[in-house]
Design a protein around this nucleic acid. Structure first.
Lengths: 115, 115
DNA sequence: TTATAATGCAACCTGGAGGTTGCATAACGT
DNA sequence: ACGTTATGCAACCTCCAGGTTGCATTATAA
């Protein structure tokens, strides 16, 4: 099951800046790393080992959730957060577009020089 | 010339959060879009059509430059900014790692359920 | 049923991001 | 030589991101 399978395909034209912004923080990247490794984690679990407060972690999780990168469900007395891959696939797709554009530009430049 | 050719390969282990952060702004994404289309642009050119001030644009360019996404060279009385693809390739690579990790997790879950 | 664990909510603090304005300076075109 | 263009620098302003602490609330374990 490669990332193609998940079809970031539809290419929603909403802006991707919020997703990038959500990933623009070391701690949040750490959280993403933990959650993308499989099992959902509770806030307490995610807080353990971190130097930050539980509330700080909570806020980071809300930011990630706001960007759609993660979602949490209240289960009993704890709320479990799970990774959601779609937004990351979308920005990867976006980065590919930028790359492609740049490569085409270079190709044009090259053929012009060779002319 | 695909993005592989540019070898994000070396995979410097410095954190990618700053790069994501630099892309976490609509205006900066716009600048990246313009610059990745080929020709270097001067600050004035980039300011034209924008509702922001020249200094605001300048600050955004400095942020992008700080993340290595762009670099500017003073040429005569103007400083030309040009796109630099390496950082974007690096974070793309990073996103692939996260995706792969997630996919493996799902695969394990699946085989466990089928067991 | 009682103590404890896991969160939610809200008020508060601080630093830096994102913008603006004003002034100084270097390069160009004529 | 002069007016104009393209920038750089710096001071200043406002607002929000990131963190903390304190208190209330809901599940659980014993």
């Amino acid at each position: 099951m490669s990332s193609n399978t998940r079809s970031a395909g539809a290419a929603r034209r909403r802006s991707r800046a919020p997703v990038f912004a959500a990933l623009g923080d070391e701690m949040r990247l750490l959280l993403v790393a933990k959650l993308s490794s499989g099992q959902p984690h509770s806030i307490s679990q995610l807080t353990k080992g971190s130097s930050l407060t539980r509330q700080a972690i909570t806020k980071h999780l809300r930011v990630l959730e706001g960007a759609g990168i993660v979602h949490g469900v209240r289960t009993g007395r704890e709320s479990l957060f799970e990774f959601d891959p779609a937004p990351l696939d979308e920005i990867k797709e976006y980065l590919d577009l930028v790359s492609a554009q740049w490569d085409r530009a270079l190709a044009r430049l090259k053929s012009f020089v060779e002319d």
